[in-house]
C-alpha cells in the first residue's frame, strides 16, 4: 500500500489530477480518531495489476468542514454518509440519519463515547 499525504485545501485539486476512470477504481473512505482530530483516508486500486493500492489521506480538526468528493466520484455519497453518522465529521452536502436514528446513541466511534 502506498500512502500519499495531502491537505484539506489541496485535496480536491490532487484528486482531479490523479483520478482517471479507466485506470483507477475507487474503493472506499475511512476515518480515524487520532485524539487531536480526524485522519480521513481515501483508497484506490488499479485495474488489472497485482496488489496496487494507493491511499490519499489528510488530517483535519474536529470542527472543520471538508469538501465532498461526490461531484468527481458519484458513488462516494454512501461512504461519506456513513462517516458523518459514525464520527460526527462535517462534510458539505451530506446530512445525518442514514444509519442511526435520532433516538439512538450518536457518533459511536468517537473516543470517549
Amino acid at each position: 500500500m502506498q500512502k500519499i499525504e495531502t491537505s484539506p485545501a489541496n485535496f480536491m485539486a490532487d484528486m482531479e489530477q490523479f483520478y482517471d476512470v479507466s485506470i483507477w477504481h475507487f474503493i472506499t473512505i475511512n476515518c480515524l480518531d487520532t485524539g487531536e482530530g480526524f485522519e480521513v483516508q481515501y483508497f484506490f486500486a488499479k485495474y488489472d495489476s497485482f496488489d496496487e493500492v494507493v491511499c490519499y489521506f489528510f488530517y483535519s480538526p474536529y470542527e472543520a468542514s471538508i469538501p465532498s468528493i461526490a461531484p468527481l466520484i458519484p458513488s462516494a455519497y454512501l461512504g461519506e454518509g456513513e462517516m458523518v453518522d459514525m464520527f460526527g465529521i462535517q462534510i458539505d452536502g451530506i446530512e445525518k440519519g442514514m444509519f442511526l436514528d435520532a433516538d439512538s446513541l450518536q457518533t459511536p466511534l468517537r473516543r470517549g463515547s
Binding site: T28, L32, Q41, P74, S75, L78
Partner: peptide
C-alpha cells in the same frame, strides 16, 4: 470485492476496523 482495514496499537483490542462490503458499493449502480 470485500475490503478490510485493520489498525492495532499493541494491545489485545484493536484500534480501528473498517469493513467495506460489495453490496455497499453496488447500491449507486
Amino acid at each position: 470485492e470485500l475490503f478490510y482495514y485493520v489498525k492495532g496499537n499493541k494491545s489485545t483490542t484493536l484500534e480501528r476496523m473498517r469493513i467495506k462490503t460489495p453490496t455497499f458499493s453496488g447500491i449507486p449502480a
